[in-house]
Amino acid sequence: MNLFRLFGDMSHLASILILVHKIQTTRSCRGISFKTQALYVTVFVSRYLDLFYDWVSLYNFFMKVFFISSSCYILYLMKMKFRPTNDPSIDTFRIEYLLGPCAILALIFHYKFTVTEVLWSFSIFLESVAILPQLFMLQRTGEAETITTHYLAALGAYRAFYIPNWIYRYWTEDIVDPIAVTSGIVQTALYLDFFYVYFTKVLQGQKFELPA
């Protein structure tokens, strides 16, 4: 474990806590894409199957359990508890265009041709694009609550922190995980546009609004 990865994981943890806090305090999931949240459940469940047969560390174990359970909890909040505040009519990204290509990529690129390894690859590819329905929704409505932008910023920072972690591990441990690294770079790049508006507007005290 190095500081870059720790900051990344803490940022990921923070993003989920911010999202749950936003939904609970405003009693609304307005502005949150259900499709993106459902994709994250798919990502975590397909990636963390190794919980059942591989022990890494106590830290690793609890983080995995937290990511699976919190993402399921968010789906419950959106579909049950605060269902009336969820508006599917603006959440229109076609996720089959993400699921299909990620499945094909996972069948081509993996470290071993086993069910769990292909699912692991699939989860890495899917995670890199899972935010697209959310960003698409933001683009469509052209605005977002400030708390929602903090959630997105923390989530974007998470994979961004992993990039220096991979460089550090390349120098200190002499290993490269090309599937994780390329997907991680794509994932971070998708946030650049959002980060630009976040830094120039939200952090200057203005509302998150996209130019018409």
């Binding site: 474990m1 071993k112 290993i175 995980d177």
Partner: peptide
């Protein structure tokens, strides 16, 4: 550098 599936990352 050798490539590998790094299993300790989340």
């Amino acid at each position: 550098a050798p490539t590998a599936h790094v299993k300790d990352e989340l």
